[in-house]
Design a protein around this nucleic acid. Structure first.
Lengths: 151, 151
DNA sequence: TTTCTTTATATCGCAAGCGATATAAATATT
DNA sequence: AATATTTATATCGCTTGCGATATAAAGAAA
């Protein structure tokens, strides 16, 4: 019984880690055309949904830390796709806004996820299984994030 | 219909990526006691199962590239948990073997995955859902790896 | 209003992860 | 045998990810 758990776990944590990298690799050719990386694409997705938010807002949504996000945003600023400005109301906050260049990328970028799903759907999993997978992952994420917050 | 796909995908690729990092964070306190990282732990798991294999064998099993694995193994060598030796039969190959120190870590390390599953099981997902999640991820991984190989 | 604490962001150092490229041994071709 | 190709590993340069620590503004407590 204990042995079974041990094997399952080896086959749970590692698959998530491997799948993550494989999916990002699958994204890469499309992102190359936009000259951005996957984490940069995630930042853009957050901003397209909600422009003018703070560094911490982005940090929370992407489940990252500021020591990852600050340099990431600086690189995106130097690429000319976002701008970083201190808030007038609260000088501690840095507001992140899309530049025109960043806004224009939305049209091309928003077609990418659909292409990915088309590949996976039926090729690998049915739509139902994809939904099931997403649901289970989101439950896991919520659980682990709540554990983190209460520490 | 197309909109639905787009939303699902945003909620599929990102959850895998976020879950991966959250699970590794959950592993970290246990790995800290052994003074190793998660990727180093994965290498050890491979070697405990199959000692004396080549760099490429490890690379394949972990779905990584040599430019990641070679430095990783060098760090593990300098930690004294593995040794790297050129094969006599084929001078191109480097054989990786566990040192006594590396072998001894198995006992402590093998208890870690069980602790993780205990946390997740029922706290987040049922055993059935964990199995379901693992199954779907493995199908996805097989599919994406086969796509990669045929390129 | 001074001092203490919290909040928001940034910096540092190091380990992954990876595309591109290099090197050298093994194998195939001519 | 000489040359070309393939295979196995390594190196370089860059981005990400994160623990630990720093800094400065805002808010609370004294």
């Amino acid at each position: 019984m204990k042995h079974e758990q041990l094997r399952l776990s080896n086959q749970l944590c590692f698959p998530v880690y491997a799948a993550s990298r494989l999916i990002i690799r699958e994204y890469q050719p499309y992102l190359d055309k936009l000259r951005i990386t996957y984490p940069q694409y995630l930042v853009l997705m957050v901003l397209w949904e909600n422009d003018g938010i703070t560094v911490n807002d982005i940090t929370d949504k992407l489940v990252l830390k500021t020591n990852t996000v600050t340099p990431l945003l600086k690189r995106m600023e130097s690429l000319g796709i976002i701008s970083r400005n201190r808030s007038g109301e609260d000088e501690r906050k840095v507001l992140i806004t899309l530049t025109d260049k960043g806004k224009k990328m939305k049209l091309v970028a928003s077609s990418i996820p659909g292409l990915l799903v088309d590949k996976l759907k039926d090729g690998a999993l049915t739509m139902e299984q994809l939904v099931e997978l997403r649901t289970n992952l989101n439950i896991l994420i919520d659980y682990l994030q709540n554990r983190e917050d209460s520490r």
